[in-house]
Structures are given as C-alpha cells and as structure tokens.
C-alpha cells in the first residue's frame, strides 16, 4: 500500500529555500513563464541566425552550435533536477518529488535527443559522418538510453507506488554519474568532438566574444524553456497521480 507524506512547509536551510522557489514557480507557470520563455526563445533565434558572425572555417552550418550546446546544457539541468529530486524521494519519502523527477526526466530525454540530432546534422558536413563511436557521442547516447529506460520502468509501475519510486530514485542517482563522464570525456580520451567552450578550464580555447554572448543568450532562453517544461510536465504527473488515487477510492467505494 502506498503512503504519501507531505513535506513540512517551514523546513529551513538551502533545501527549504529551493522548495519555496519551486513552489513560487508553480504559482507563476501560467502567467510569467510563457511570455518570458517566448521572448527569450525569439532572442535566441535572432541571435543565432542574424546577430552571430559567420564562422570562417565551417561557414553558416556552425550556427547549429547555438541550439546544440544549449540543448546539452538543458539536458544536464533537467537530469540535475532528477538527481536532486531522487535524493529528496529517498530522504523525505515524499511522492511529489517523484512526480517532479519523472517530469524532469522526460524533458531531459527530449533535450538529449535534440542534442544528438543537431550534433549528427552538424557532424555530417564537418566530420564527414553523422555518427562516430567516440567517447563523447557514445556517452551522450548512453545518457539518453539510461533515462529512457528510467522512464519506461517508471511508466510500468503505479504513480503512487512508493517502493517503485525509491528503486527508480536509486537508479536515477546512479545514472547521473554519466553526466560528469560526458563532460570529461573529451579530456580523458581522444575524440572527434571539440573541447568544451562553456565549462572551460583556464588555458582552453575560447570563442570570440560576439559568438559567446549569443551562445549565453541562447542558453538563458533554453534554460527558461526547460524550467517551464519541467513545471508543466510535473503538474501533469501530479494530476495523473491524483487520478490514480481517485480511481482507487472509487473502486473501494463501488466495491462496498
């Protein structure tokens, strides 16, 4: 039998502040986030297509970077939310964190798929192939498969099944280990993929400022979009769980 516990509203510290911020975003998600996301995404398109300069070696196709890199960052952020919420599921035993984790995992899988697709379309003219089994690409594909498996496993269990939520949380935490491996793969192994341009170390090659500013604008836009999608998806999961609970109550009532 399932148990749904409610988190304490006055839990202090950083996690309490994070909880309050998430609660505030839930209140705002229909009023503030859609217009802000729309404006940010428009700025991203204009920046990528019009403002950013043409790259001298790769030509116009290099503009795919302005959607490819932010997609990767969005996927990392979404899986980061899954990681934190999975820890909270294990710690607080609150099924609302499980709903957010499932919602964020869907968004993460979406952006990982978009990252892989745009990367393949960028790689074909530049590397001469859509796909290569190098460390960065393979570990990214693995990330997609790991969380697709998480979603599949979670969809087979009841939304209110606390034991399934706990097992899934442990799996999601372990799966997140792939993110630092992806990030470090271009340093640890020789790959076709270029070195990091966002999470750089001192001495790494840097993009020109004009390109970097457009890239940062795109990243802000896509991170806002990711936040909105996670909030919407989590709400869908939460209402779905309520439908399951109501169905169980109705079955008991009609069975009596």
């Amino acid at each position: 039998m399932t148990t749904i516990t409610r988190p304490t509203a006055n839990s202090g510290g950083m996690l309490g502040s994070l909880g309050r911020l998430i609660a505030k975003l839930y209140e705002w998600h229909w009023y503030v986030l859609p217009p802000v996301v729309g404006i940010a995404m428009m700025a991203m398109i204009v920046g990528a297509v019009v403002v950013a300069p043409r790259e001298a070696v790769e030509g116009q196709v290099q503009r795919l970077m302005y959607i490819h890199v932010p997609s990767a960052i969005a996927a990392y952020m979404a899986f980061g939310v899954v990681f934190v919420c999975s820890l909270m599921v294990l710690w607080k035993r609150d099924m609302r964190y499980d709903a957010v984790a499932r919602g964020a995992a869907t968004v993460g899988v979406l952006f990982t798929a978009l990252m892989l697709a745009t990367g393949a379309l960028w790689g074909r003219p530049i590397w001469g192939t859509f796909w290569a089994w190098d460390a960065r690409l393979t570990s990214s594909l693995l990330l997609f498969l790991l969380y697709a498996a998480y979603l599949l496993a979670r969809s087979l269990a009841d939304e209110l099944d606390e034991q399934a939520a706990r097992y899934s949380a442990v799996y999601a935490i372990v799966a997140y280990l792939d993110v630092p491996i992806i990030q470090m793969s271009v340093r640890w192994w020789r790959t076709l993929h270029p070195q990091p341009i966002v999470m750089r170390l001192p001495g790494d090659q840097q993009l020109p400022t004009s390109m970097l500013l457009v890239l940062y604008a795109g990243m802000i836009g896509i991170l806002l979009l990711t936040t909105w999608l996670i909030v919407l998806r989590s709400e869908t999961e939460r209402i779905g769980a309520r439908a399951t609970a109501l169905r169980a109550t109705l079955d008991r009532a009609e069975g009596n």
């Binding site: 043409r54 030509g59 116009q60 196709v61 795919l64 959607i67 490819h68 997609s71 697709a117 745009t118």
Partner: peptide, 15 residues
Amino acid sequence: MDYLGYLFAGFAVFW
C-alpha cells in the same frame, strides 16, 4: 561551403 541544407534541417528538427 556553408551547408545550408544541414543548417536548415538542424533548426527544423529542433523546433
């Protein structure tokens, strides 16, 4: 060599 077809395809897939 701008490969506009790939650029268009990439943006189309994304959106």
